[in-house]
Nucleic acid binder design. Structure first.
Lengths: 243, 243
DNA sequence: CGCTCGTTTGAAGCTTATCAAAGTCAGTGG
DNA sequence: CCACTGACTTTGATAAGCTTCAAACGAGCG
């Protein structure tokens, strides 16, 4: 009923390595609970020590860090197929909250169940670990963007990343995908003010690099955008090989 | 001879969870090679697909990302006890290089050996995985700094982080530690220009928050610096408990 | 001593933030 | 059908923060 194997997460794993019959059997036995969330709804509270981790089945969610002055920084965006807080199984306490950016469908799995499953499968363990390592690589790419890229570069790189991650789980149609997100949220992802994001988006539109009405994002010329963004998808490790 | 068990890495593990006799036995059997590096020397090349991962025994090293315009962004600093590129065991290709910031002593371990060791110990696996999860948490903290903190805040937070990480492996004497690093390197870590870092450092000195001659960094008033930095060490997960 | 590397200082200019207001659009109720 | 509302985008003006270029300064070294 919760069907990890049918989820885009299984697609993400399978994109990087073949799953053995034993792997599939173990994943099939894992059962969880599905919940729904609306935009801006909190999925996981900061400082939580929950006994379960959640897998995003549909929608976009973000990791949010609040600052004392009321500021907000988003440290990662999660797309369908992301095991959002898998690291919550290892860490004592989460240093951030997770918030739904759009309507989200989310499956929860108990840490005890996950640990039991992984304890008998070094291979699945490496694959799950790999997914958290890719998350870290994504975060490094964000650091590079925030530290050394122009506002255009940051947004362009971000859009390339999202497109690429959606393609990896088969959720982009052509170079276009559903992206019903506020500019204020974008601003908190790239570390700029809303006003500046607005102006930068206008420039990207003018250059013909993106088409976005606030609901669907289309990238007319992916190569052009990649060039403008200095985007190299290597860090997403989209290579199928034994691990 | 390479003695993982005597390294600050073992201290880092032990800081988070007790090591069983079996854990210790396994770690003891792991053998590697030690190499030395001077400042600015490359420890791991970008795009490398090395068959070994390295553990920093002494010194500071950084992950570096080069940009087409000649820019440079550092995405993480490693202190003694960090298993610098443990994630290299999982990823196909590293998206960054690792460079010695100071004189460094480094131990290398084969991926095959590491995998073999971890395959028989779910507990050690979780601990190694945990260390990469903490790395990711550190990166998130950097994203927050770069996105939403002032130049003072960024540097102050950075110094708090380094102090805290060194304390965690018992390498800070009081609130002071050896830190022979160039301002240009600092600039590439916090995403500012050298000139601006210079002026910001002067302000931090003026405020009595740091004392730094380029070789040894002293923090006269750790609480004051933490307050200025909005620093909360929770993300470093310095809690000892069964994992 | 002269050279190199790194820090410090100065000035000009660009990028980005902030504050404030106007414009757009979907939904709601009269 | 039209005013009204609330959420979001767009525009404008101004100020602050940061970068860049250029030069001076200081310490370590052959």
């Amino acid at each position: 009923m919760t069907a990890v194997l049918d989820s885009p997460f299984a697609a993400a794993l399978n994109r990087r390595d073949d799953l053995s019959d034993e792997d599939r059997r173990l994943l099939e036995m894992l059962t969880g609970t599905v919940r729904l969330y609306g935009p801006q709804e909190e999925i996981i509270a900061e400082d939580s020590t929950a006994a379960e981790s959640c897998l995003l089945l549909e929608g976009f969610a973000v990791r949010v860090h609040l600052l004392p002055d009321g500021g907000r920084q988003i440290t990662e965006i999660n797309v369908a197929g992301d095991f959002v807080d898998l690291h919550g199984m290892l860490l004592s306490k989460l240093d951030h909250s997770v918030v739904a950016l759009t309507r989200c469908r989310v499956a929860f799995y108990g840490h005890a169940d996950l640990k039991a499953m992984l304890a008998v499968s070094p291979h699945l363990t490496r694959l799950f670990w790999l997914m958290t390592a890719i998350d870290a690589a994504i975060q490094r790419a964000w650091i590079v963007s925030m530290g050394r890229r122009t506002s255009e570069g940051r947004l362009a790189h971000f859009f390339c990343e999202v497109l690429c991650r959606l393609e990896a789980v088969g959720l982009a149609s052509g170079s276009s995908f559903s992206f019903p997100v506020r500019q204020a949220d974008l601003a908190d992802m790239v570390g700029l003010s809303v006003v500046h994001v607005n102006r930068t988006l206008q420039r990207l539109r003018q250059m013909g690099l993106i088409v976005w009405d606030g609901a669907t994002l289309t990238i007319p010329d992916p190569d052009g955008l990649r060039a403008a963004a200095d985007f190299d998808p290597t860090y997403l490790d989209l290579v199928k090989r034994p691990r």
